[in-house]
Design a protein around this nucleic acid. Structure first.
Length: 442
DNA sequence: CATCAAGGCCAA
DNA sequence: TTGGCCTTGATG
């Protein structure tokens, strides 16, 4: 089926670990999309928070009740005040990666008497009440307490959600005016973007101890890089202000469809922000060919050849690189060129990223109400982007119009299909960052 | 040393 | 599978 297998050069990406029934673009993502569910925080559907029996005030009395089923609470468990039953249920669900389905309409009431009637709705309520899958330990180590990072991340997310709501309301009240609170919000979105995590992929690390005998692990890392990329994108998704507005299924659906575009957009933005438009004064170059070209695919193919050699610890013949990655590199270079013409600011970039993620194909299988919600959210980000573009830029003159950016998006989409077909998901990253300069905080 | 919040155990 | 009770171990 995959005739490439026989002539596969050692750097290309084989098919996904244990599936080969289809060669669809997302085949290599099979393991990743499954992981999406667990990473995104469990299984089921909506994250609506049906506030039952007057939980409006958080008095001392309510804190002694389980926030999921109103049974007697035995303290904080995984981020929420719950009973032993809901605690154990949540733990088992996460540990065993359970995916439940509601036989009704995903709106079963959960209380002490009927909490065992629908696992799906019980788990959904656990999540909506703030229980965090991250708080269930993978290593099963007992005792102690979880570090603050898990919960602070969550709190940060909640606060951004609140600010976004205010912001969106403000936009709707008085559109097309400069909004200081909006500026602040966009700034926070920029800070949460974590582009570095995506750029500094572990899979592209050079093992200093590795001689050419260690090629196998390097190769293996390259084949797993799709998983790593998706993992990073999932983390990014979780920090989005609208994360809790959509059911996990919707996030999975969107990410599965759009991740390649997000990869190209991120890599492209990184390249544009690091390599200032054709500046000849490149003082700290490592090689004479260390810089990505925005116009010449041949230069980039050479660059790819060199960096692959670095990562794999072995020379790759140029014809090989050219044959396998030529189309992709060509396409990526063209995309870079048009993208750099847009002169996108960090603020605009985060908006474009959100708009890209929120793009639904016409044949989407999602629920009608969810589709409407996604479209509304996308509209909000388009508005936000437009407002940003209308603000007087401090440095260079903002000459890019909203229309120019929106017209560029189909080009991104087309290029993403080339990336998916090539299955060499690491190419954009390898081209825009020298593996020698990768930075890791751990 | 008490407390809190993880994990484990096992009868129902 | 559930959930009451027990053990663990970091934290203040």
């Amino acid at each position: 089926m995959d005739m490439r297998e026989s002539i596969t050069p050692s750097f290309s990406l084989p098919e996904s670990p244990n599936s080969d029934t289809d060669d669809s673009a997302s085949a290599a993502l099979v393991s990743s999309t499954k992981a999406l569910f667990t990473l995104l925080g469990g299984s089921p559907t909506t994250t609506d928070s049906t506030v039952v029996n007057g939980t409006t005030k958080k008095s001392s009395a309510t804190s002694k009740l389980c926030s999921v089923c109103a049974d007697k609470s035995t303290g904080l468990h995984y981020g929420a005040s719950t009973c032993e039953g809901c605690k154990g249920f949540f733990k088992r669900s996460v540990q065993n990666k359970k995916v439940y389905h509601c036989s009704q309409d995903n709106c079963c009431e959960i209380d002490k008497q009927n909490r065992n009637r629908c696992q799906s709705c019980r788990f959904r309520k656990c999540i909506s009440k703030g229980m965090l899958t991250e708080a269930v330990r993978e290593d099963r180590m007992p005792g102690g307490r979880n570090g603050n990072s898990i919960y602070s991340n969550y709190k940060q997310r909640r606060s951004i959600i609140r600010k976004t709501r205010d912001y969106v309301e403000e936009i709707e009240r008085r559109p097309f005016q400069s909004l200081p609170s909006g500026k602040k919000l966009i700034k926070e979105l920029v800070e949460m973007d974590c582009l570095d995590r995506l750029i500094n992929l572990k899979g592209l690390r050079i093992n200093p101890a590795s001689a050419s005998s260690d090629i196998a692990p390097a190769c293996k890392r390259l084949t797993r890089i799709g998983d790593e990329i998706v993992e990073q994108l999932v983390e990014w998704t979780k920090t989005l202000p609208f994360f809790d507005e959509l059911p996990v299924e919707a996030h999975t659906h969107l990410l599965t469809q759009r991740w390649a575009e997000l990869v190209l957009l991120s890599a492209g933005y990184y390249a544009c922000s690091v390599f200032t438009p054709d500046s000849p004064d490149t003082t700290e170059m490592i090689d004479e060919t260390d810089e990505i070209s925005f116009t010449n695919p041949q230069v980039n193919l050479r660059l790819l050849q060199n960096r692959l050699a670095l990562v794999l610890g072995k020379e790759i013949p140029f014809e090989h690189v050219s044959k396998e990655a030529g189309t992709l590199v060509h396409r990526f270079t063209t995309l870079l060129n048009s993208f750099s013409n847009l002169k996108v600011s960090p603020e605009a970039y985060v908006c474009i990223k959100a708009i890209t993620l929120l793009h639904l194909s016409p044949d989407s299988t999602l629920d009608r109400t969810i589709i409407d919600k996604v479209n509304t959210l996308q509209d909000h980000f388009v508005k936000t982007l437009q407002i940003h573009l209308h603000q007087p830029g401090e440095d260079s003159q903002q000459t890019t119009s909203l229309a120019q950016i929106l017209e560029w998006l189909p080009e991104l989409r087309n290029a993403s299909s080339v990336l998916l077909h090539s299955k060499m998901f690491y190419v954009p990253f390898l081209l825009c960052k020298n593996p020698r300069r990768l930075v890791f905080d751990e």
